[in-house]
Design a protein around this nucleic acid. Structure first.
Length: 789
DNA sequence: CTACAACCAGTTTTT
DNA sequence: CTGGTTGTAG
């Protein structure tokens, strides 16, 4: 039934063994170090693979070699990665190496996906004494176990659950936010600590209730037959530790273990691996201590630094030849990372001499930066800076924090530059959002048959397959759309009874909504009307499944998103573009992603915006965490630069909007750490005014040059780009407004006073409609531009 | 009980 | 600026 009971499941044709005698094509073209890493099959191996040194290639070749030599069948190899993307890529490449005969590597996947598989088999081994509560009428204090069909909670569910527990514990949810508790518990799980194992030194956590709430949370999860992400590993470690017989079974089964991105493993993952590898010690870990960027999530660089101690006699192989970047890019990255202490140390080298230096440019503000990058990308498309024409697919913008993305999206949308956001929110892919969008589409164009098909029976209207086929038949015969077909089907009596009534209601609704669109009714109100009249909102309200509240929340958000648009059509068009981004693989587009999301990827052209103190390195890293987190930020910078093959451009802005307020900041301290010999400082119009030397600057003089440039001084003296605009709060009494006055409100904009009632006024706002507002939040319209200083 | 205006707190990074 | 929560009016 399973991979275990039948060792040949998901395995390999026997011809695979016969292949062993034949030459191994996957070894061709490997360099000496790579080959050594591939051929050292038995015993512990640590592959220290610098950026761009062909790590994945060596790893996949190693797997191919294991199979090819008959050391293990594909289903006896455990290979773990951190991301699904990495797992997918490895599967693809192994498939290419070995041909289609190798169907599956069932145990190649992320830590989490492998653990789900294992845990489903052994769920019952996880149990807790669920304490009886005062309101527990059934029974107090019984043992509950996890069952194999457990559900995996997402972050939202976790927070909701913890919120309930915090409230139940009579704690002020304001002072002790569920998010904080979630972080705390996650940290414990990353360290493989069950509630009972949390050291007493941490008993003070979360107002001295941390461990207690953690225990309550775990109880609740078992009762709900649910686990969170952290549990997947924690539970497996618990099982392996408490049941040697189970552990032994897997130690025997997984004859060879491979681990990608070992520098990012946390303690739980480390224990899990060590337990499994204990017997045969056939474990190969691949990583780069300079690319450890998940410390905030519990990753322990110590794991990789300690490998030789954990596995005495381990063979250590260093991959140091870089095949990705040109020498200037590599030199800049190497110099930057050399500022970190406690590294294993590698000397990356490349045969690709020459090429463009890393470019550095400052801008007035974030918008100008986005504008400049847009122009740069367009220029590179047609060939610039000594490079041949670059496709958009060849270019990527890597940001520190996802909120930086918006500036680029706005800009690219307005100039029509195709882009794709990788790792962005999947909001528009959600079921409920898609349903709601289908209703909106019908309102705009009732002949949208796909939309009609999607929602004709959602919510349930008794229109099953039969009825839908009838509608389609009538429509086809009459040569009309499905909506008209539906009307015809009802009129002809093809559909009758209750279903007919519901269908008529839907068709009439669509007609009504469409008329409203044509009449230009307020689209936000209309959208809400549609969701309500269609019964869609009600459907989720009546839904008792745990995800229903979340879905309703999403629908709320969708309606809110409408506010940014003039009408429904504009909105739908916009979303169609977004959808294109998500689904439109294969189309030529610029990639926008976070630095974290970029790990493992490479691009000919890389743009690194936002190199400012407070943004990158982030304010948090600067405030807390000291040297350790600053070093992690530096590694992030290192990852960013080493993504570039041929052209790497770093930029910063003097001013940026933060929380809607303008702030100015200094260029990143990392800029100071770049070797001037390998950097070209570009001049931006409007900032440096051509006052900067563009080359030949002294070593380590980069940032000083920036500060001393005439442009920077001018920028400082000009102050923030736009002064903060705050409402002038007028004293409440006497109310200085009369009926008919034009007024301005921070939130709702301009409007006219319709009524005065004490200090409460009724204002007919131009954009937002009629509102009741306190006088203190209003000021005369002709003073709207007043600045409070 | 709902709706909505006022208030307030938050932004890294993700399986 | 955004989103979520709170307090109050209806």
């Amino acid at each position: 039934m399973s991979d275990f009971d039948d060792p040949f499941e998901g395995a390999v044709s026997l011809s695979q063994r016969a292949m062993a005698a034949r030459p191994a094509p996957y070894l061709d073209g490997l360099n000496e170090a790579q080959r050594a890493a591939v051929e050292a099959l038995d015993g512990p191996v640590l592959m220290l693979a610098g950026a761009g040194t062909g790590k994945t290639r060596a790893l996949t070749a190693r797997i191919a070699h294991l199979i090819h030599t008959g050391k293990a069948r594909p289903n006896e190899i455990l290979a773990v990665t951190f991301t699904n993307k990495a797992a997918r890529e490895m599967k693809d490449r192994i498939g290419r190496l070995l041909g289609d005969s190798v169907e599956g590597m069932p145990w190649l996947g992320t830590f989490h996906s492998v653990c789900v598989k294992l845990l489903r088999r052994h769920a019952e081994l996880i149990s807790r004494d669920v304490g009886g509560r005062a309101d527990d009428l059934v029974e107090t204090g019984h043992t509950a176990t996890l069952r194999p069909n457990f559900t995996i909670l997402d972050t939202d569910d976790q927070i909701r659950l913890m919120k309930q527990l915090i409230v139940a514990a009579n704690m002020d949810e304001k002072r002790w936010p569920a998010r904080t508790l979630a972080g705390l518990i996650d940290g414990w799980k990353n360290r493989a600590l069950t509630p009972e194992k949390v050291p007493s030194s941490e008993a003070g956590a979360f107002n001295h209730r941390g461990t207690e709430l953690y225990a309550a949370y775990q109880d609740r999860l078992i009762t709900l037959n649910a686990v969170d992400f952290g549990d997947l590993l924690l539970h497996m470690v618990t099982i392996f530790q408490s049941r040697p017989d189970v552990l032994e079974q897997y130690q025997r089964w997984f004859r060879y273990i491979l681990v990608d991105e070992y520098q990012d493993t946390n303690i739980a993952q480390y224990l899990w691996l060590r337990l499994l590898a204990q017997g045969h010690r056939n474990i190969c870990c691949v990583g780069d201590d300079d690319q450890s960027i998940y410390g905030w999530r519990g990753a322990e660089v110590g794991n990789i630094l300690r490998f030789e101690k954990d596995f005495p006699g381990a063979k250590v192989v260093r991959l140091e030849q870089n095949y990705r970047s040109t020498e200037h890019i590599l030199a800049a990255a190497s110099r930057l990372i050399s500022a970190n202490a406690g590294r294993l140390g590698k000397t990356l080298w490349t045969e690709a001499k020459g090429g463009q230096k890393v470019r550095l440019i400052g801008h007035w503000d974030g918008e100008e930066e986005a504008r400049w990058i847009g122009e740069e990308i367009e220029a590179l498309r047609h060939g610039a800076h000594g490079l041949p024409p670059m496709r958009l697919d060849d270019q990527a913008i890597l940001v520190r924090a996802s909120h930086q993305m918006r500036a680029f999206e706005d800009r690219f949308l307005s100039i029509g530059l195709p882009y794709r956001v990788i790792g962005g929110p999947r909001f528009y892919e959600r079921l409920e959002i898609r349903d709601a969008m289908a209703y909106f589409r019908l309102a705009v164009s009732p002949d949208d048959d796909l939309a009609f098909e999607r929602v004709v029976n959602t919510p349930k209207r008794g229109l099953g397959e039969k009825a839908q086929q009838a509608i389609q038949r009538v429509a086809r015969e009459a040569g009309v759309g499905l909506v008209l077909g539906a009307r015809g089907a009802v009129q002809q009596g093809v559909i009758s009874g209750k279903a007919a009534g519901h269908l008529r209601g839907l068709v009439e609704g669509i007609g009504r909504w469409h008329a409203a669109v044509l009449e230009g009714e307020d689209h936000i109100r209309l959208a809400e009307t549609i969701l309500e009249e269609s019964g869609y909102t009600e459907m989720w309200l009546n839904d008792k499944t745990p995800e229903a509240p979340g879905r309703l929340e999403n629908l709320k958000e969708l309606v809110k998103a409408l506010e940014q648009f003039e009408n429904l059509q504009g909105f739908l068009e916009h979303v169609a573009l977004i959808m294109d981004n998500d689904s439109g693989e294969g189309e030529d587009k610029v990639s926008i992603m976070t630095l974290h999301g970029a790990k493992g990827l490479e691009f000919p052209v890389v743009l690194l915006p936002g190199w400012e103190d407070g943004l990158f390195p982030s304010q948090r890293a600067l405030d807390e965490g000291g040297q350790k987190s600053l070093e992690e930020e530096r590694r992030l910078a290192y990852v960013g630069i080493t993504r570039a093959e041929r052209l790497c451009t770093i930029s910063f802005a003097g001013n940026r909007r933060v929380y809607g307020q303008w702030q100015s900041q200094m260029p990143s301290r990392f800029i100071d750490e770049l070797p001037a010999r390998h950097v070209d400082v570009l001049t931006a119009p409007g900032l440096y005014g051509g006052g900067m030397r563009s080359s030949g600057i002294e070593e380590r003089a980069t940032q000083a040059d920036v500060y001393n440039s005439p442009g920077w001084k001018r920028m400082q003296s000009r102050g923030p780009a736009t002064p903060a605009r705050k409402p002038v709060v007028v004293d409440a009494e006497p109310v200085p407004f009369q009926i008919g006055d034009r007024v301005f409100h921070v939130k709702f904009g301009y409007g006219e006073v319709m009524e005065v009632d004490g200090d409460t006024l009724v204002i007919e706002f131009d954009k937002a409609g009629p509102k009741h507002v306190k006088a203190g939040f209003l000021k005369p319209a002709d003073h709207a531009d007043d600045v409070p200083f």
